Simulated scan of single mutants.
Amino acid sequence: MAPMDSIISITGLSKSFGRRKALNNINLDIKKGEFVAVFGPNGAGKTTLLKIMSTIINPSRGSVLVNGIDAKKHPEKIRGMIGAISHETYLYDELTARENLVFFARMYGIENNNIDERVDSMLKSVNLLQRSDERAGSFSRGMKQRLSIARALLHQPEILFMDEPYTGLDQHAAANFERVLMSTGDSDVTRIMITHNIERAFELCDRMLIMDRGEIRFDKLKTEIESVDEFKEQYLSIVEKDTDAEGISNV
């Protein structure tokens, strides 16, 4: 049984792909409204964990409860609770910004008489209302990412999953992404972000996790960490030296 204040509760979670073990006996509870940042080298199991939590793939063993619902038994009930942002925008380039959001609003089951108001509200929140009738394919990387935030938050999800959302963004676009991310989400929205970007994540999150070789090797509240430099030292002490270059970023 999940703790009363947990929105996600993971117990004994393992996942193997053939002979390769991607996750090994993960136990994790995430509270409603937490912003959790997950770090680790490539191949640590971060994306696999996110995909299992978002019901894209099933675990080999163990359980995931989301709001008390078993993710394996009732994935359809969970999918309406979550939004997803990644380096892939999941937008249709041939459609306008408005058409993209209307399409996803219908997919999310938003009632027809509420769609226009909700779409306009989200376009305004990401500063794209004036560009709403332009094709998404004509947008810059940063604009597409802002539109993908609107797409992910359109149905007011309880949980937001982010997998390397900074990929391809310059400093200005990354700062805009963070502003939009923090201003459009309700304080009760639970955010889980996979990133190599320690500097930026440290500013945003409440809790820091480090994964390596399919296991959670570090899990602390940010208030328990003295500084970002201390966290970097912890990271480097956990992750093997030959993965340091690809596992950590200051951008």
Rank of each mutant, 00 (worst) to 15 (best):
residue 172 H to P: 00
residue 25 N to G: 01
residue 94 E to G: 07
residue 91 L to S: 08
residue 215 E to S: 07
residue 74 H to W: 07
residue 56 I to S: 00
residue 156 Q to H: 14
residue 167 T to M: 04
residue 233 E to K: 15
residue 60 S to Y: 03
residue 101 L to D: 06
residue 45 G to C: 03
residue 215 E to T: 06
residue 107 M to K: 13
residue 236 L to F: 14
residue 116 D to N: 14
residue 159 I to Q: 11
residue 212 D to W: 03
residue 133 D to N: 15
residue 139 F to T: 07
residue 226 E to L: 14
residue 11 T to R: 15
residue 86 S to A: 10
residue 200 R to C: 02
residue 220 K to A: 08
residue 67 N to F: 06
residue 71 A to W: 02
residue 221 L to M: 12
residue 104 F to A: 12
residue 143 M to A: 05
residue 120 D to M: 09
residue 182 M to C: 13
residue 197 N to A: 05
residue 135 R to D: 06
residue 22 A to C: 03
residue 198 I to F: 11
residue 80 G to C: 10
residue 4 M to C: 01
residue 121 S to A: 13
residue 60 S to I: 02
residue 30 I to K: 06
residue 248 I to H: 09
residue 146 R to W: 04
residue 96 T to A: 08
residue 192 I to P: 00
residue 126 V to T: 14
residue 194 I to R: 02
residue 155 H to C: 08
residue 228 V to N: 01
residue 66 V to I: 14
residue 79 R to K: 15
residue 154 L to H: 08
residue 84 A to H: 12
residue 196 H to T: 04
residue 92 Y to N: 13
residue 172 H to D: 13
residue 102 V to G: 03
residue 61 R to V: 04
residue 180 V to D: 14
residue 231 F to R: 01
residue 31 K to P: 00
residue 108 Y to L: 09
residue 160 L to N: 07
